[in-house]
């Protein structure tokens, strides 16, 4: 499989510079320090947030961070579309019998995410110990689906913006802002925010579907949600649908691609 082969080659290439490799993993861990700090504060200082226990909140942060780690690891290329266009790489991708989107994925594997994965593992371990959930096979399956959904949702948003970046280089700033926004608000139960803010995070920039709604389903707190329980349960499916829609948008924008330099 090309993706795995590419990751293997990337790791092999990175290992040739051992100090750099270790540094990249360390950066991945340090990069998530805000999430770790947040989790530590939640666990040690507060009994919970907005009626949710510290464990519930930590589970929200864990699902969000896991999704982000996979999205950044495999799809970091979407945030480089401006540079890929300027360097003529998109031109080169169009000359190969493989979808351009997949080649954008294959262009670069974000090594620091191995460090991010270590943080995710520690957070999940802590959250699972703290939450009061009977881990039936269905719930374990739903948790996995939630992480996949969180990944696809972040990828969907970056895909929509990345498609714009094929012709507008400044969109990269919007991509960075979106990631910051998801990192800032995606770790919380969003009902602690004013109504206008959570409405934005449900209907405009649907961060609520990333981890908040799925964890509400897992912890049985759907009655306090601003959407019907069925919608919350369908979060991973909705994220997958948004991802497919984003892919459609990518294809439309790719047809309008104008290349650079003549």
């Amino acid at each position: 499989m090309l993706t795995l082969r590419f990751i293997k080659l990337s790791i092999k290439a990175a290992l040739e510079y051992r100090t750099d490799f270790i540094f990249m993993i360390a950066v991945g861990i340090i990069w998530q320090v805000t999430v770790v700090a947040f989790a530590t504060v939640v666990i040690t200082r507060f009994p919970g947030l907005g009626g949710w226990s510290a464990g519930d909140v930590l589970l929200v942060a864990s699902v969000r961070l896991a999704g982000h780690t996979f999205a950044s690891g495999f799809f970091i290329g979407l945030r480089q579309v401006s540079e890929l266009t300027a360097d003529g790489k998109i031109d080169a991708f169009l000359l190969r019998p493989l979808p351009v989107y997949r080649q954008v994925m294959l262009n670069y594997f974000h090594m620091p995410e191995f460090g991010g994965l270590a943080v995710v593992a520690v957070m999940f371990a802590a959250a699972v110990r703290m939450v009061d959930i009977d881990w039936t096979p269905w719930r374990i399956g739903y948790l996995v689906a939630s992480v996949v959904g969180a990944t696809l949702l972040e990828v969907a948003l970056q895909t929509v913006l990345g498609a714009f970046a094929l012709r507008r280089p400044t969109v990269k700033l919007w991509q960075e802002w979106t990631e910051e926004l998801m990192a800032a608000f995606g770790n919380y139960p969003l009902h602690i925010l004013p109504n206008l803010a959570w409405a934005v995070f449900v209907f405009v920039l649907p961060i609520a579907f990333c981890a908040y709604f799925p964890v509400a389903v897992l912890t049985g707190q759907t009655s306090s949600l601003p959407v019907p329980a069925g919608v919350a349960v369908a979060s991973p499916l909705i994220s997958a649908t948004l991802f497919l829609a984003a892919l459609g948008w990518w294809r439309i924008e790719l047809r309008r691609y104008e290349s650079v330099g003549g």
């Binding site: 169009l94 000359l95 290349s259």
Partner: peptide, 9 residues
């Protein structure tokens, strides 16, 4: 060339 190569429509 880019139109012939399929890069540009």
């Amino acid at each position: 060339i880019k139109m012939l190569a399929g890069v540009l429509v």
